[in-house]
Amino acid sequence: MIIIAIIAILVLIFGISIYNSLISKKNQVANAFSGIDVMLKKRFDLLPNLVETVKQYTQYEGETLTKITELRGKALSTNATEGDKLALDQQIGTAVKGLMVSVENYPDLKANTNFLNLQTTWTESEEQIAAARRNYNATVTTYNNAVMMFPSNMFAGMLGYQTMPVLETASEERKNISAKELFNS
């Protein structure tokens, strides 16, 4: 009788643990997404300074700078969803990359300390966002496995939990960061 009671208690504890684990995994997914958001905010905050610095030294980049400012405005607007922000970030990334290439034509700007600092901070933010995206994908994969695998899938069914899509890795993230490409292109 005692043995049966012990087994029942152990099964109950195990069941509660798996249930709590599933809830925790769902919360971790939300947490991981906010991790991306924090990194995006940091990155968007660099843009006004970058635009101002570039503006002082360049004559023909006005169009790119306006485009970057516009994209930033959209990304920071209250209507922008998380998906929108990620898409806008990619567009901003492409525009800034183009800008960095044009900088080759402005030796004074290239030698400006403030600009060089912004350039390294920008590269850093790129890697931080890549890390936050990878973290999100790892969290979603763990959650999806829990939703699909026995025995946690029983609780997932009861709670109405469904699998979530992972973020596609941008082709840029798959490449190794190369100093040569960044600064000597």
């Binding site: 991981a32 991790g35 990194m39 890697e127 931080q128 890549a130 890390a131 936050a132 990878r134 973290n135 790892a138 969290t139 798959r174 190794n176 960061i177």
Partner: peptide, 12 residues
Amino acid sequence: DQIEARYILTPA
């Protein structure tokens, strides 16, 4: 820090 770990441990 999960994100920082990935910031350090890049695929490369």
